[in-house]
Amino acid sequence: MSIQHFRVALIPFFAAFCLPVFAHPETLVKVKDAEDQLGARVGYIELDLNSGKILESFRPEERFPMMSTFKVLLCGAVLSRVDAGQEQLGRRIHYSQNDLVEYSPVTEKHLTDGMTVRELCSAAITMSDNTAANLLLTTIGGPKELTAFLHNMGDHVTRLDRWEPELNEAIPNDERDTTMPAAMATTLRKLLTGELLTLASRQQLIDWMEADKVAGPLLRSALPAGWFIADKSGAGERGSRGIIAALGPDGKPSRIVVIYTTGSQATMDERNRQIAEIGASLIKHW
């Protein structure tokens, strides 16, 4: 067993022997301040990774656009098919120029040779490549099948209805392509620590998230040296922004954090800054 596999296998073990965790309302004060600064709703939840206990939450059962955070769930569904012998990570998928959609920095470079399922998941999570996500959605049967996968996990809230990039439209009061912070946090925890996926697939999923290259201005910008984070960000229309993450000190994750916002007129930089400040408060009061 590799060191990384050992780390993920012992996530519940280490967490069980940690000192009790206590909620700190100071972080919620910052979440509410972010709402004021952005002029928009902000949803927040913080779960203990081992027990699933909610440590703090704000608007945990209000719907927010998922945006690209759905790509972690998508690759979880792909990995479940791999575990069941219905898919192979090494299978190569070929596609054409007509398949390319807006923001496809990886797939646009491989029109000639195609990409493997493993490479597509890596591109979808680490670079948020939209064509990679659409190609992977095709392998599982489309958005409705991802929703069905989530329902089978016990998540009857999260739903995907459309493809990239239309799913980022974020129309107010439109339930399409949305989740709730509580539902997303619980589902992410199941994917990373539950028995739904094999140990190898859980490790692969967290490795992809740990290698995320496009979430630097968010929670990662607030992390002290030595902290662990595996995350996936999302951005959408109407001032929408979000991030889902597993993080913790001492090089291992111990909490799940989900943050979503929508309806702001603020710039992307300002949305990023507010999420980073929430992260800084979380870490300060850990």
Rank of each mutant, 00 (worst) to 15 (best):
M1A: 01
S2I: 15
I3P: 14
H5K: 14
H5V: 08
F6T: 06
V8Q: 13
A9Y: 14
I11F: 11
F14L: 09
F14V: 11
A15I: 14
F17C: 09
C18T: 14
L19H: 15
P20N: 13
F22A: 10
T27K: 04
V31K: 01
V31E: 01
D33V: 14
A34F: 09
E35A: 07
L38C: 07
R41F: 08
V42H: 02
G43R: 00
Y44T: 02
I45A: 12
E46T: 13
D48N: 07
N50D: 15
G52K: 06
E56P: 01
E56D: 12
R59N: 09
R59K: 09
P60N: 09
E62A: 09
R63P: 07
F64H: 01
F64W: 03
F64I: 02
P65V: 04
P65G: 03
M66R: 00
M67P: 00
S68P: 00
T69N: 02
T69Q: 01
F70K: 02
F70G: 07
K71R: 01
V72T: 09
V72P: 13
L73Q: 05
G76E: 01
G76D: 01
G76N: 01
A77R: 09
L79D: 01
L79E: 02
S80E: 11
S80F: 13
D83I: 03
A84E: 12
G85V: 06
G85Q: 10
E87L: 11
Q88H: 15
G90K: 15
R91P: 01
R92L: 12
R92W: 09
Y95A: 04
N98Q: 15
N98F: 15
E102V: 11
Y103L: 04
P105R: 05
V106E: 14
V106F: 07
T107Q: 01
T107L: 08
T107M: 05
K109R: 14
D113N: 12
D113M: 10
C121T: 03
T126I: 09
M127I: 09
D129T: 00
T131H: 04
T131D: 01
A132S: 08
A132V: 00
A133Q: 00
N134I: 04
L135E: 06
L135H: 04
L136R: 00
L137P: 00
T138V: 15
T138G: 13
P143R: 04
E145N: 15
T147Y: 04
A148H: 13
F149G: 05
F149I: 10
L150G: 05
H151V: 12
G154D: 08
G154K: 07
G154I: 02
D155L: 01
V157S: 12
V157D: 15
T158G: 05
R159L: 06
L160M: 12
L160D: 02
L160N: 07
R162P: 01
E164N: 00
E166C: 11
E166W: 15
L167C: 11
N168Y: 03
I171H: 15
I171Q: 15
N173W: 15
D174Q: 06
E175M: 15
R176V: 06
D177I: 01
D177L: 01
T179C: 05
T179S: 09
M180N: 13
A183S: 11
A183Q: 12
M184R: 00
M184Y: 09
T186A: 14
L188R: 00
L188C: 09
R189S: 13
R189E: 09
R189D: 08
K190W: 09
L191Y: 07
L192Y: 07
T193F: 11
T193G: 15
E195Q: 13
E195D: 13
L196V: 14
L196Y: 15
L197A: 04
L197H: 05
T198F: 07
R202T: 15
L205C: 03
D207V: 11
W208F: 07
W208L: 06
W208Y: 06
E210P: 00
E210M: 10
A211Q: 14
A211D: 15
V214E: 05
V214D: 02
V214P: 05
A215D: 02
A215Q: 05
P217Q: 13
P217E: 10
P217G: 09
L218F: 04
L218M: 10
L218N: 03
L219R: 03
R220P: 02
A222N: 14
A222Q: 14
A222I: 13
A222K: 15
L223W: 03
L223T: 13
P224A: 05
A225M: 15
G226W: 06
F228Q: 06
F228K: 08
I229M: 08
I229D: 01
A230M: 07
K232Q: 00
K232C: 01
K232Y: 00
S233A: 08
S233P: 05
G234A: 09
A235P: 00
G236V: 02
E237W: 10
G239F: 02
G239N: 05
S240G: 12
S240F: 03
S240I: 01
S240N: 07
R241V: 04
A245N: 01
A246V: 13
D250S: 14
G251S: 11
K252H: 14
K252N: 11
P253S: 09
P253G: 09
R255I: 05
V257K: 00
I259M: 08
T261H: 06
G263L: 06
G263A: 08
Q265H: 15
M268D: 06
M268T: 08
M268P: 07
D269N: 12
N272T: 08
N272C: 04
A276G: 10
A276P: 01
A276H: 14
I278L: 10
G279S: 10
L282P: 00
L282I: 12
K284H: 10
K284D: 14
K284T: 14
K284G: 10
H285I: 04
